[in-house]
Amino acid sequence: MGLGVILIFTAIILILWGLFLRKRKNKIISNVMLLVGIIALSISILLLTGIYDPYANHIK
């Protein structure tokens, strides 16, 4: 759960930074920032909901 919380804040910062760069006519870097932000947001949602649990194999 800790990594999901950290990733969600990082994703929000990257998405906002990408939107800010899009207004400054820097399309390539803004698209990369938005793509990385969306991927980080997707991973954080998977971690927070428990769909993906990296420690599930260790619990028996």
Rank of each mutant, 00 (worst) to 15 (best):
I29W: 10
A40W: 04
A40G: 08
Y52M: 00
K25H: 15
L41K: 12
R24P: 07
K27C: 02
G50K: 00
L16M: 12
F20H: 15
N26M: 12
V36K: 02
V5A: 14
I6P: 01
M33L: 15
F9E: 08
I51S: 11
N31C: 00
L46Q: 03
F9Y: 13
L3A: 11
M33R: 01
K23I: 05
S44N: 13
I15D: 08
I43G: 12
S42C: 14
D53C: 09
G50D: 12
I12H: 06
G4E: 08
V5M: 07
G50T: 11
V32S: 04
L14T: 05
K25A: 09
Y52E: 08
R22N: 10
S30M: 09
H58K: 10
I38C: 14
K60I: 01
I12Y: 08
N57P: 00
L21F: 14
M33F: 15
V36A: 12
G18S: 10
T10S: 07
K60L: 02
L41I: 11
I28W: 12
K25D: 13
N57F: 07
S42G: 15
G2N: 09
G50F: 13
I29E: 11
V5S: 13
A56L: 10
L3M: 03
F9L: 15
L34V: 01
I45H: 11
L3T: 05
I15N: 04
I43Q: 02
F9I: 07
T49C: 00
I45A: 15
A11Q: 03
D53L: 05
I59L: 13
G2M: 00
I39W: 05
L48K: 11
I38R: 03
G18D: 11
I6K: 01
Y55Q: 05
L35K: 03
K60W: 04
L3G: 02
K60D: 02
T49E: 14
H58A: 07
T10K: 02
L35R: 04
A11W: 08
K27D: 14
I59Y: 03
L7C: 04
S42A: 14
N57D: 10
I38G: 12
N31A: 12
M33D: 10
A40T: 13
V32A: 01
T49N: 15
P54C: 08
I45D: 03
A40M: 11
G2Y: 08
V36D: 03
S44H: 02
